[in-house]
Amino acid sequence: MLAEPRIVYNEGYLDEQTKRVVRRALLKGIAIPGFQVPFASREVPMPRGWGTGGVQVTASVIGPDDLLKVIDQGADDTTNAVSIRQFFERVAGSESTTRTDEATVIQTRHRIPETPLAEGQILVYQVPIPEPLRFLEPRETETRRLHALEEYGLMYVKLFEDISRYGHIAKTYDYPVMVNGRYVMAPSPVPSFDNPKMHMNPALQLFGAGREKRIYAVPPYTSVESLGFEDFPFEPQQFDQPCQICGSSGVYLDEVVTDDAGGAMYVCSDTDHCTRAASAVGFRASRTRGEWDFPATGTGTEGAVQ
């Protein structure tokens, strides 16, 4: 009987052929800002919908000279961000950082960092539903036609219905944008708070939707306008209070429930920004000090395993 073949994976996990597929799609995406380029998305060793598009984009872009930062919900230490960072450390041997200003490639889910991005940086978004018209028209065959005809009436009708019903456009995340005056694009589920950061950003913004097999891009210094009406212009969400750890205002905040009597406090969603702002003002309540406090098992036994 023959010996079973060994299980061997490629360096960087993705094979070169797959990278070429992704790379070609990225270049066309940049040449047609906001247009969703179909690509032969491959399986990657994590569930579909958990960042497989972003991972394929990052893996096709990243090299030995890069510093990678991975955030989920603005934080470097959320479990999915940790998991993706570990994946790249394991299969690509890439160096990573938590500092926005040092990173050359930043993979993100649901946030754009507070620290302004610079030329030469690449922001890779994980995208669940790349089609901004999907919930108005579920058919790909139809939405493709609508984009070709630049027929976005459906979207404006939806936004207008919100206004007549609630007095506001009731869209708080994944708020649709118009890219370079031509394509309506889904910014991925970043809060509308982050939308203005996409406009004329010096960094290159790349979007990967693995399950839906689409890649799109916004080149640097490209117009990204959030949709609105003259009398009801787009208004990004704002917070009244500053972060209770670092004191920053004008940042996106997480609401942390502190008791069961309605108590809550507000802290930065962007952990890198918060850490550095806190140390700058000499706050001692550093975010890096805390330890994950979950017991390893439901019974609360500590260190069930090494």
Binding site: E11, G12, L26, L27, S60, V61, G63, E119, L204
Partner: peptide
Amino acid sequence: PVQDAQRVFRAVLEAMAR
């Protein structure tokens, strides 16, 4: 092949983006 293609691609990516 892996490193060289990556370096060339990054230059091309930047070129198309800028």
